[in-house]
Design a protein around this nucleic acid. Structure first.
Lengths: 154, 154
DNA sequence: TTGGTTGCAAATATTTTGCAACCGG
DNA sequence: CCGGTTGCAAAATATTTGCAACCAA
């Protein structure tokens, strides 16, 4: 068995430069400093941040980065299938770096999002009325509720 | 057997004035002409319209209605549990008049939304890691895909 | 009568875009 | 070097808000 396999990148073998170099060369776009920093930031985020959040975090170590570059870069990553854009509650768009199949719990008070897996759901087959509608690309569950912290503070 | 039952309002016995009178009195708010017209429009819509859509349709028969009243009224209805606000794709908010449990198919090209029921899903039990997170209020499935019409025109 | 509601306009918030300077390949 | 990319500013889009007039109760 060889070490250094490329699939299933856990945090332990997260090499953003190598990954992004690969992604950019496949997409035929340049690997810029800004793209690398946005990539590192979003891929290591666990809170489904909005563009503004990423911008705020990056500005600390990259004071000259602009908000519209963050928007453009996130849009580029989304088009390339590197991250996913989410729309929850009445908020602005948020970004999810986890491209594995998973579902979301959303707290309607604090707007925190928790990822979860649900193998029983994944085995289910859609009703024929929906498979007949066209081509299915993806399906996911959104669970809404109030997290314990918010329930307490209410 | 009596006619005119109030439950399960099908289109055939849709009496918006009576319904809204009831809703408003329970909520302790006034039944205004604008609220009634927005109510009729959203409750008879089958395309999950945005606020702008409702506004455009209403303006034909109510030239003086303002867009912000439509926004305010839809927000009021949502708070009262009469309609539901949805956030799909990268679009503005859209409104769903159907308050029965159902799920959505969304065409990523034309952004058409199709409602469907899925009894098999409704029987499923959430993983304990999620029920432990807090109180669950609702759960629904979002299926994304491309409808036949869009697949053809591509 | 009177306070909740509306219409107008202006403000906010979010995201996009034109363009010249810049820099990665 | 050169065209894709960035930063800036301004525009575009979506939604909210202050306020005086209005009208449902």
């Amino acid at each position: 068995m060889r070490l250094g396999n490329k699939n299933k990148s856990k945090d332990t073998n997260f090499d953003p430069l190598a990954q992004l170099r690969d992604i950019c060369s496949k997409a035929g776009i340049r690997l810029t400093h800004q793209r690398l920093e946005v990539f590192k930031e979003i891929k290591s985020a666990h809170d489904h941040p909005a563009a503004e959040d990423i911008y705020g975090r990056l500005k600390k170590r990259m004071p000259t980065i602009s908000l519209d570059t963050v928007y453009r870069t996130l849009a580029t990553f989304e088009k390339m299938g590197v991250i996913r854009k989410m729309h929850v509650l009445d908020d602005h768009a948020r970004f999810d770096p986890n491209m594995e199949r998973h579902h979301h719990f959303v707290c309607t008070k604090c707007k925190k999002i928790i990822d979860f897996k649900w193998p029983d759901f994944d085995e289910l087959v859609l009703p024929p009325e929906i498979t007949d509608v066209g081509t299915i690309l993806e399906q996911q569950v959104e669970v809404r509720g109030v997290c314990k912290k918010c329930a307490k503070s209410k």
